[in-house]
Write a protein that binds this DNA or RNA. Structure first.
Lengths: 237, 237
DNA sequence: GCTGAAACCAAAGCACGATTGGTTTCAGCC
DNA sequence: GGCTGAAACCAATCGTGCTTTGGTTTCAGC
């Protein structure tokens, strides 16, 4: 699996040209709203190359996770769609914030536990980086995004496909709801600082491979979040 | 909403005739393997009635939950398909028994907790009946079925749509797997008696509306189940 | 050994008409 | 007025056939 040859930027004259060209299309060239790339045959004609060369380049981009392909459908930028999202969209209509919170309070501490028992050193580094991004975020919106990424990363590292699916389900419903705004109002500079400290505590427990402590810290974090959300909802009433 | 007229078995001469005829088709008339009924137009012609009458009869059967209809598709006996099952079928392939058990251990105690806090007297009666059926089951297979129904009932009573979906996901994957056989081997007369006692304990806690105790009892039950499953797998090795 | 070209396969999309449940309207009949 | 039967129309779905598109193989040239 190890590339022997030192030339990494210029594998072969033609292949590299094609690869760079397509990479540029993906990264800066504006694509249709669905992210669809031109067809392989079209790209080959446009770049004056053969289909085989184009396919080799696309193979690489796909391996890098920049694009995904489906026979009969096309080539698209980004990640392949997740069937969990569709299910989430279907049941999102009759789920209230309280139910979502109950579900989070049930599953996320367990995920933190598993995460602590299975995380590699590399994983912990990534988590710390995400916590830092959450901390450094300028506005409340981007803090929200990085916070979501952190919780998602913990769920992924936990390494249980079923529980990850359940988490994704909750996460999608939570995001798609119109009570986004309520959550937004619940975030203040004070709460954000508090959340950052709790994130630290969770990650420290994971770093120490202490599953029970990680679960406890996560539960504490969620309960704080829950309380603030509830308070902000009562304030509205 | 209250029917004033005493005639319940004979609402109107024609409507009742059509209703009975279709009810008979659904209950005893053999249908195609997918449970599809003849089309409304076909039924109307065959029964010598108008489409409106047929539709009224079908409306009633649908309200009773005996059939379900979809525009452009047809009328079918039984319950409408659950999108959760499809998702479960998709991810079932890369889920091992251990992951499923982890997931159950995470979610079912929480469901028992919620169930204890929300169950009505009627709910408890139903649970006791299911536990009894599990106890009285002749063979291991039917015990398995009633046991599943009991756990599902607890999940439903918990009254959280998201968590019910997550439970259904786990349940479907668990059922569809080929390690059904392993679970079968793990059930012996001794373990069955033990499980019955644990079911009692769970339901007693629910009856007492003691959420924490219900969760504890459920966790204990699942851990026993888990241990036996693991032992039976090791025995095979 | 890589490239370009061509041909074929299989999965998905698209367009079309047919089918089917959902709805409305209308006339006939208690 | 209320139920019935008939008809017409709407909207979702399905089946069919053709096209598109990625996946694969083959072959000749450099």
């Amino acid at each position: 699996m190890i590339q022997d040859r030192p030339k990494d930027t210029q594998e072969t004259p033609e292949a590299d040209r094609v690869l760079q060209a397509i990479r540029q299309i993906v990264s800066e060239g504006r694509l249709p709203s669905d992210g669809r790339l031109p067809t392989e045959r079209h790209l080959a004609a446009e770049l004056g190359a053969g289909r085989a060369s184009v396919r080799r380049a696309l193979d690489r981009l796909e391996a890098e996770g920049l694009i995904w392909r489906r026979q009969g459908k096309g080539t698209f930028a980004g990640q392949p769609p997740d069937p969990t999202e569709e299910l989430a969209a279907q049941i999102a209509s009759d789920v209230d914030p309280l139910s979502a919170m109950e579900a989070r309070l049930c599953i996320e501490p367990a995920l933190a536990d598993l995460c602590a028992r299975r995380a590699t050193g590399e994983d912990v580094v990534r988590l710390r980086k995400l916590a830092e991004r959450t901390h450094d975020a300028d506005d409340s919106d981007s803090a929200e995004l990085w916070d979501g990424a952190l919780h998602r990363a913990i769920a992924r590292i936990a390494g249980n496909r079923l529980m990850l699916t359940a988490f994704t389900l909750i996460d999608e419903v939570r995001m798609g709801e119109d009570w986004q705004e309520k959550r937004h109002r619940a975030r203040t500079p004070q709460t954000r600082a508090f959340y950052d400290a709790q994130h630290q505590k969770i990650i420290d427990a994971i770093d120490a491979r202490d599953g029970a402590a990680a679960a406890r810290a996560m539960r504490e974090h969620l309960e704080t979040l829950f309380d603030n959300l509830r308070k902000s909802m009562e304030r509205r009433t």
